[in-house]
Design a protein around this nucleic acid. Structure first.
Lengths: 341, 341
DNA sequence: TTGAAAGCGCTAACAA
DNA sequence: TTGTTAGCGCTTTCAA
């Protein structure tokens, strides 16, 4: 307090007339403290406004800190997951710390390392493209739960949405409306291809459902690197000979850009239906009204925390969990104009 | 590595055949290391994959860590500030750690304390309602920069948007369009009243401009506690006898809810014009098209970092900075129907 | 039940 | 330029 001097465990011990070890035991709720001693120590702690140094604790024992790797700061789907994480961690005695990184490949490892350097007691990883090797090695040192990748490992836990089921909901919705020429819009690059990321799983279901329903020749997969690029690609799609009547976007961000083009040109869902994925908050705004899948982002975060605390508590066998997706039908989808099929 | 055993400075020293102090000097870029020794040490560091423990460093010297207090995880205006912060910190050798808290009064201090417990070297505070006393005391221990409050202190720096100028832009825009009955929509509670928060400053300008332009009798200030509440309040406004023709919302989140009602009822900007504040990404979507003020949230974050690093570097006199707001006119505002004035 | 004492991984005086 | 050494605030055996 006051002049920038932090009050230390030693100060508390002196004020309470006990040893530092006693104070340590009290703050850790450890075995072997008499009620009187506990009372004396706790009153001294309160009186002096003592706060244990996380740094000093981390060096020997636990930091009572859970790390969250955040690679896309302005992605509302991730914000929602983070929200659930914070909510679930509330009151557990652990503190969440988030390490943000600039978007871009190769940045997530940096954020993850930053958290490891802090000696967090557990780690929530949301980045889809962290090298598996890094993850495995990481999981040997600290409990890890991976969101947003359908990967199983002996060493860490996994919780994801059921992307296959969700994508099937989307496809069947569009098909039931009468759409034949359905395009799939996803992020650029093919780095993700082998990694069982959600966009990849959704893509596979798209392909499977298109073929399985006799629409194989209408398959069209387009990729965009940025918001601007997504709009450009959508425009091209609208100008193409085999102009699609519907777009299944890998996520709401992309879907919103596609919808941007539709609305900008005064088109309607009959001209081009758009479906997204994640149910970000603005999808429900009447000016947007985007049909999408809700996979309970906050529930993903909550489960991640539960799994992590479980592991910190001693579990060793790996677990794998999924949330159930729900289709939210809004105005961005509708029947194609007749004859348009 | 491997079996969960971290490689320590001692390991590096042994591998390089030098003392721990030498390793310490190398990683801190401290004075007095020969090129050969530096090379030997650096190669050993690379070979062993050594990473210094932030915890151990923090206990003696610096943690090379900047803390960011985030009280509203899903607030896109704050995400934008955070984005700027991360961008500016990139490459400085410091790492940003974010402590999120559940929304709600009294939660920001918890996040701030968590960061102090981590022994961060500097602290970015964005919460508008942190008690001034806490802030002053905090600033004695660690460099602090406060965003989003027009408060000056000897002990910490401040960077904000120029809310008075921004609010004036809004009011003059609405007045020039011909609006007389302009309401001000802001967050619930009056706790903020004395704290010079942005919504309060904007409110004062609203009042001043209304009175100054002879519209004093049309002053109407309404408050909402939640998104749902904002819609309810807007509906009430539309049903009231002195129904306003325009709403100036304290931020885009509130403005979007007001717009929600307008669009839901099939009304237009001539029936009820809406202006927000912050220029969140979705304000530019054609389905929303919200007139708003851009105060360069990322620039706020960037400046905060610069001020903080400055202070860490030794500056002691307090500084105060502002960004310049720009009015972005979109479709949510227009002239009121004639006779409606 | 309590406390003394030996570290944890690192930094920073200071000596060599 | 280098290494020795004494801590930093805390945890954790191990005796008392």
């Amino acid at each position: 307090m006051g002049a920038g001097q932090a009050v230390t465990m030693m100060d508390v011990a002196r004020a309470a007339g006990v040893s530092r070890a006693a104070v340590s035991k009290v703050i850790r709720d450890a075995y072997g403290v008499s009620p009187e001693m506990r009372a004396r120590v706790e009153s001294a702690i309160a009186r002096l406004g003592y706060r244990p140094s996380v740094a000093a604790r981390a060096i020997r024992g636990s930091s009572f800190t859970i790390g969250f790797e955040l690679h896309e700061i302005e992605n509302p789907a991730l914000s929602r997951i983070l929200h659930g994480t914070v909510a679930e961690i509330e009151g557990t005695g652990y503190q969440l710390v988030v390490a943000p990184a600039m978007a871009g490949v190769g940045e997530s490892p940096q954020a993850i390392n930053a958290l490891v350097d802090l000696r967090v007691d557990g780690l929530v990883v949301v980045a889809p493209h962290v090298p598996s090797g890094l993850l495995e090695e990481l999981a040997l040192r600290v409990p890890v739960v991976l969101l947003s990748r359908h990967h199983h490992s002996e060493n860490y836990d996994t919780v994801t949405g059921d992307d296959a089921a969700g994508a099937r909901l989307v496809m069947r919705h569009l098909i039931s409306l009468g759409h034949d020429r359905i395009a799939y819009l996803t992020r650029g690059g093919e780095a993700a291809a082998r990694e069982c990321t959600p966009p990849t799983v959704r893509l596979e279901v798209y392909l499977h459902e298109m073929k399985g329903s006799g629409r194989g020749r209408h398959i069209e997969v387009v990729r965009a690197d940025s918001a601007l690029d997504a709009r450009r690609v959508t425009s091209e799609l609208l100008a193409s000979a085999a102009r699609p009547t519907a777009i299944f976007a890998a996520n709401d961000d992309l879907a919103l850009e596609a919808l941007h083009v539709v609305q900008e040109r005064g088109l309607s869902a009959s001209d081009l239906s758009v479906v997204g994925y994640d149910n970000v908050r603005l999808a429900g705004h009447p000016g947007v009204s985007l049909t999408t899948i809700d996979q309970s982002g906050d529930e993903l975060g909550r489960r991640a925390v539960r799994l992590l605390l479980d592991r910190i508590g001693g579990r060793t066998e790996a677990r794998r969990e999924m949330t159930t997706p729900r289709l939210i039908v809004r105005n961005s989808t509708g029947r194609p104009r007749s004859g348009q099929r």
